[in-house]
Design a protein around this nucleic acid. Structure first.
Length: 404
RNA sequence: GGAGGGAUUGCAGAGUGGCCAAAUGCAACAGACUGUAAAUCUGUCGGGCUUCGCCCUUCGAUGGUUCGAAUCCAUCUCCCUCCA
């Protein structure tokens, strides 16, 4: 009975379960939800992460929030750092071959993961594990046995493999090992559930298959939808540069939320906030009846920053945003720069302080009318510096500096 | 092992002797507009300068042909495909 796990009423359990189930993509088998509610001992839930890109973003929040609910119901999350799988590298990626990470890097990244993950997860109910721990020891013999558990034909069913195969693009053998090893992790950890984004569905299902082949109890598979990045088109990812990082400042997070396409507002609300279905309907109604989407984005930004930082910081971020962008005023805090002691050209000054990567770029900014001193636009890119103390230099829309 | 295709400015992708710092798209940056860092429109997008003109460095690497090369030749490096 659930109450044996943790002190929760039947009603609490029902509510939490409903909250958990909301918006999930796949639940295989469906009975997994019952099991979550009625388990008599904590279920072991695996969530894997690739340590080569240790910056988590709000796209990860979708799954992490779900995991947190499970923890609150008394279950255990095994946060798996795929340090071994990351070390294999991926030579076919047309970017560059992944560099193997040193164990120091892995450690550092794992630490960084923790600070990020524990913004959402409960440390007391989270176990961090590294798959190199057992995969390092896997012998060739065992590797062959593992490979024998799956066929090429079935492997090629995976979307991206299928696509590449039909387009006669290369697939390296070791790429087949990825899903196998990921599944093998579940065999070793004896997970009851594995969670991930929908892009992980195939790999996660492999865990089920392999557990069965190895004569273990079979894990349930639960996937959550992927969140598009701030461009509203591609999935959120750091390498695409369309992400909002969990560790970014509240102001940046808020600003980035304000830059998502209006069509993404409801999706963001449903995936990364605790908005109830009723609220979502209300928001949809408001949008349909012509409410300025700006206000909903503000609400979204406030909720996100409140959650990741604090309500106070959220209000500050909102105020600063409106101050700078709606009222076109200067922000309250801005970096302070000293006035150069010797005659300096604006372009040199700007490059010196990182306002532009080259003098050429600096003069372009000036020619575009993007640089102003106390509201007065600088026009001459050849001019010499003439700032005075307390004056405010503005570069572009959102960079402000004050002279001292 | 054999045959063929390719390497271009952040990415994608044109360009096959001068008009090429190199089309176009995306991204990025800026301006206008907007009660948004949305959308849309416009512009910019290697670097430097005595800045509307000039100079320097770039088209995998090195050497060569030529008045002149991203474009032709040679060698090398890397990548891919097919056949075995």
């Amino acid at each position: 009975m659930p109450t044996a796990l943790i002190n929760l009423s039947i009603i609490d359990i029902k509510l939490m379960l409903a909250q958990f189930a909301q918006g999930l993509q796949d639940v295989i088998p469906e009975s997994a939800l019952d099991r979550i509610a009625t388990a008599s001992k904590p279920l072991k839930i695996k969530f894997g992460a690739d340590p080569s890109a240790p910056d988590l973003h709000i796209g990860h929040m979708v799954v992490l929030k779900k995991l947190r609910i499970l923890q609150d119901m008394g279950h255990l999350v095994q946060f798996l750092v795929g340090d071994f799988t990351a070390m294999i590298g991926d030579p076919t990626g047309k970017s560059e071959t992944r560099k193997p990470l040193t164990s120091e890097q892995v450690k550092a990244n794992a630490e960084s993961y923790k600070t990020q993950v524990f913004k959402l997860l409960d440390p007391a109910k989270t176990q961090v594990v590294f798959n190199s721990e057992w995969l390092d020891k896997l012998t060739s013999r065992e590797m062959i046995k593992l490979s024998a558990q799956y066929t090429v034909a079935r492997m090629l069913e995976r979307d991206d493999f299928q696509k590449r195969f039909s387009q006669e693009r290369p697939i390296s053998i070791h790429e087949f090992l990825y899903p196998l090893l990921q599944g093998y992790d579940s065999v070793v950890l004896e997970n009851d559930i594995e969670m991930g984004g929908t892009d992980q569905k195939f790999n996660v299902l492999m865990g089920r298959h392999l557990q069965k082949e190895y004569g273990k109890p079979v894990q349930a598979v639960i996937t959550a939808p992927l969140l598009e990045g701030v461009d509203g088109v591609q999935k959120m990812s750091k390498s695409l540069g369309n992400h909002i990082g969990l560790l970014e400042s509240g102001q940046d997070q808020f600003g980035k939320i304000m830059s998502i396409p209006d069509t993404m507002i409801l999706k963001y609300f449903s995936l990364i906030t605790d908005a109830s279905p009723e609220e979502l309907l209300q928001f949809k109604f408001e949008l349909d009846s012509g409410k300025n989407p700006k206000f909903l984005k503000e609400e979204l930004g406030v909720r996100l920053v409140s959650f990741l930082h604090s309500p106070q910081e959220a209000m500050n971020a909102k105020e600063a945003f409106n101050r700078v962008f709606s009222q076109k005023l200067n922000p309250e805090d801005m970096p302070v720069l000293s006035i150069p002691p010797t005659p300096t050209k604006w372009t040199d000054f700007m490059v010196l302080h990182g306002m532009a990567p080259s003098k050429k770029e600096a003069s372009r900014l000036i020619e575009h009318g993007a640089v102003s001193l106390d509201g007065e636009i600088l026009r001459d890119s050849l001019a010499f510096f003439l700032g005075k103390p307390e004056q405010v230099l503005k570069v572009g829309k959102r960079r402000f500096y004050r002279f001292k």
